[in-house]
Computed example of a mutant assay.
Amino acid sequence: MATGTSTELIALLHLASPALPIGAFSYSQGLEAAIDAGVIADADDARRWIADGLEIAADGEAVLLGQQFRNWAAGDIPAVATLNEWLLAMRESAELRQETEQMGWSLSRLLDELEWGNAQGRAALRAMRPLSLPTVYAYAAQSTGATLEDCLTAWLFAWTENQVAAALKAVPLGQVAGQRILFGLHGAIQAAAHRAAATPEDEASTFSPLLGILSARHETQYSRLFRS
């Protein structure tokens, strides 16, 4: 896999950091509902759920994030806006829609505060409401000069790490068990990023009925730690 300079790597690490103040820690993306439904009861269940979710993310959202990366690189703002609407429409439940909008807005605001990228791109984001997180993330990553595949690797690693963090709190798991899951998925993350980079936009698939059902159930779940 081609890699960028250390400056580009630092920027991607910044974007993938769990300390990025966009609220990722408050969402489980259906994992908490899966625990409540008995689908996840221990570390092995959590590993399978996260690994399956990584494949879903790679075949759907990551493919479209990659296309947004290309759209930003080409300066094609109408294409960015159209695909942003698609990214919003593909969310499986009200909570997942709210998640991508809230985090997209928060990241866009942060980029403005940091003057990340060029003024024209940030102005385009301000004019685009509501925003999906992949649209904003693709802009931020593309503006660093990083490669598409490195961008997708950072995105998918951050997604996986956040799922592990949610499992630590909600299953619950020990720290070593969580790190074992994350370490064991290193190769899967790299393969998923490579596949997503090579998949055409019109072949993106978000088919995940169990995730959609569990996410919808989470909206009325009695006891919750997370917002999704």
Rank of each mutant, 00 (worst) to 15 (best):
W155L: 11
S228R: 02
N162T: 12
Q190S: 14
I213R: 06
E161F: 00
S132M: 07
A140V: 11
A62M: 07
L54V: 04
L12M: 13
R224Y: 06
Q98R: 07
L13A: 15
I181S: 00
E203K: 00
A146D: 01
A166Y: 01
P18E: 13
A24M: 07
L31A: 10
A196S: 15
E113R: 14
T7K: 10
N84Y: 00
M103F: 00
A170M: 11
W116S: 10
A124R: 06
V80T: 10
L31C: 02
H186A: 05
A166T: 13
L168S: 01
F69G: 09
L185Y: 01
V164E: 09
S205I: 08
G66A: 15
A74P: 04
L83E: 04
G174R: 01
I50N: 05
S223A: 14
G104Y: 15
L65S: 08
V171T: 03
F183N: 09
E203A: 04
G178W: 08
P130D: 10
Q67A: 14
P200F: 00
R122C: 03
Q67T: 15
P21Y: 11
T5M: 09
I50C: 08
R47Y: 04
T135G: 06
L168P: 02
L31W: 14
Q190G: 11
S28K: 00
Q175N: 04
A216H: 00
L156N: 04
E203S: 15
T199M: 15
F207L: 13
V80A: 02
R47M: 07
A62S: 08
R129D: 15
G104I: 12
A196R: 06
T199R: 01
L173D: 10
I181H: 02
A89K: 13
Q163I: 01
I213E: 05
R47H: 11
R70S: 13
K169C: 03
E61A: 08
T82S: 07
